[in-house]
Design a protein around this nucleic acid. Structure first.
Length: 385
DNA sequence: AATGCGGGGGA
DNA sequence: TCCCCAGCATT
């Protein structure tokens, strides 16, 4: 196995890589809403959203966020439910809670000013080595390195680094090389150039080596197989999970034919923490058939909120859908129950429960899976049941 | 060191 | 449709 010390850039080559990369970045960088601003708050929000999430996905979330929360004080004083509402659909909802807690920390303990060093930044919850390096270099011009998935790939190819990219040995190599390379004059631009190159040129599949500004320094290219680096990581299999769900409706108050949905809030920790969902019960085993799934969700409605499925005006079956998480394959068995207006909820409720008018369903924080269920129900209603 | 935690884009 | 991508906290 290679040892950490064997991968290096000689001083001349280091200078050449810096110059080539910065020149390329100046000409080709994408115009992103969090660029060309000197506000650690904005850099921090962008980097929190960008964790495990691609640029194209983040752009609209970032814009909406800045409109609502222009500074760290506004986040610190906000309610977590409003933060989750802006975050819905972005995934990894813990990040939203980290942002909330860190904002309070900055206001309460740092007098409203973000720390400017890597160590100081890492005291914020949700800010690890990557994010601290990003904020310190981009917002504070500190000559510090950063390593994300893009940088791992670029460095693996430049130095033809084999082995598991997540191994501690390779991680330490990446950080050492990134620290060695980072341009002391323009650290933020250099770090963004590395990531931008990985995202647009040095891509996982079919890298565009012919237009790469650092091709002549790339040992992977030289070997004729840039996409052999980094070594592919083995992916863990998805855990199967089975749930029964019902879209529970009743007529809204007043005239018109508007409906209200019954929503329940998920627990404040674990999967999709604190998001709202249609009444959902997890099943121990995959149900034998539609009646068994209907039975399970019917029993849950009765037990959790005192809704007797026998009292429903209509019961429907919406079929089965699969939703994939990074670590779970969730099979959803979907029912629909329509109750008369007068129906009341009973019982000691473990979770917050509320009726939401159909027109306001967008204003409630729900996961992508929840949106899928709602769309299935809507399509089904449009067909006249 | 291993595990939990979402969702979207591209082949 | 499947395959691939991407940081941090907790234990």
């Amino acid at each position: 196995m290679p040892t950490d010390g064997e991968f290096t850039f000689e001083p001349t080559e280091r200078e050449a890589v810096r110059a080539a990369l910065l020149e390329w970045y100046d000409r080709h960088r994408r115009d992103l809403p969090w660029r060309d601003i000197e506000d650690p708050y904005r850099t921090w929000v962008a980097e929190m959203m960008l964790q495990q999430t691609q640029v194209a996905t983040v752009i609209d979330y970032y814009r909406r966020w800045m409109e609502r929360f222009p500074d760290v004080e506004s986040v610190a004083h906000a309610d977590i439910d409003e933060i989750l509402e802006l975050w819905q659909g972005l995934g990894y909802y813990r990040r939203a809670r980290f942002v909330h807690r860190s904002a309070r920390m900055v206001v309460d303990e740092y007098d409203g000013d973000f720390p400017s060093t890597v160590d100081g930044l890492e005291t914020l919850i949700g800010v690890g080595p990557y994010t601290a390096g990003a904020i310190a270099s981009i917002a504070f011009d500190r000559p510090v390195p950063l390593v994300d998935g893009n940088v791992e790939r670029v460095l693996s190819r430049l130095r033809a680094i084999t082995g598991d990219p997540k191994s501690s040995e390779n991680q330490s190599t990446y950080w050492r090389l990134a620290d060695d390379l980072v341009d002391p004059e323009r650290p933020g631009d250099f770090n963004q150039a590395m990531m931008e190159l990985g995202a647009t040129v040095c891509t996982p599949q079919n890298p565009s080596c012919l237009i790469c500004p650092v091709r002549q320094h790339c040992q992977g290219f030289e070997a004729g197989e840039p996409d052999a680096f980094p070594e592919p990581v083995e992916r863990s299999s998805k855990k199967p999970m089975s749930v029964a769900v019902s879209v529970v409706t009743r007529p809204a108050a007043g005239t018109g034919d508007e409906l209200e949905f019954l929503l329940m809030k998920r627990p404040e920790d674990g999967l999709l923490a604190g998001l709202w969902e249609m009444p959902t019960v997890e099943l121990d085993d995959e149900p034998d058939g539609q009646p068994e799934a209907l039975d399970a969700i019917g029993g849950f409605l009765d037990a959790s909120v005192g809704l007797d499925p026998e009292a429903a005006l209509e019961q429907g079956w919406l079929g089965t859908m699969t939703h994939l998480f990074s670590h779970i394959e969730m099979t959803m068995h979907l029912a629909a129950h329509h109750f008369p207006r007068g129906v009341t909820l009973r019982g000691e409720r473990e979770r917050p429960t509320k009726w939401v008018p159909a027109g306001e369903s967008e204003d409630v924080a729900m996961s992508a899976a929840g949106r899928k269920v709602m769309n299935r129900w809507r399509d089904n209603s449009a067909l006249g049941n």
